[in-house]
Amino acid sequence: MKWIGALLLISTTTWAGLEWSKKLDKRPKHIRQLINALQILEAEILYSQLPLKDAFKLMARQLPAPVCSFFNRLAMQLSKIDAELEVAWEDSVKELMLISSLGENDKEILLQFGRTLGQHDFTQQQKQIHLTITHLERELEDARDNQFKYSKMVKTLGFLAGLFIIILLF
């Protein structure tokens, strides 16, 4: 009985450590996807001049998993009759935070970008997109730094913490 409990405890803490390190590993990937999405959006706005709703639909088809459902949701909300872009954007960003590994900073950047979307002419909009991409690139560097530094450490620490607690309770 004692051994089963010990095994359960150690597997729990190890799993928690693995989950944490997975989150650290995925954040740069998700930020890169966002940057990609913004570049596509820029192209759609400047060259094909699609309305935002159709642009979002198109992007959802081109992008991989978490960001894809973000734009899908956005397109769906915008196709309602009394849809407002800012509200829909904020709502979708909240949803995106739940399913992706993005951090608080990324959320702020996205929200700020959402407030500028659809308010300006082409050149201003392009500038806003570039600004957001620059911000995201800075976050990307940060996220990559954290990944290098902590993702291995968190894994080992989870296991060691489990071992520590078991010895304490033994």
Partner: peptide
């Protein structure tokens, strides 16, 4: 043995955390 085990594990945690700055 319990105290020895705690010592070893604390030393490991210390080393890892120190390595990561």
């Amino acid at each position: 043995f319990q105290i020895a085990g705690i010592g070893i594990i604390v030393a490991l945690i210390h080393t890892i955390l120190k390595q990561m700055g």
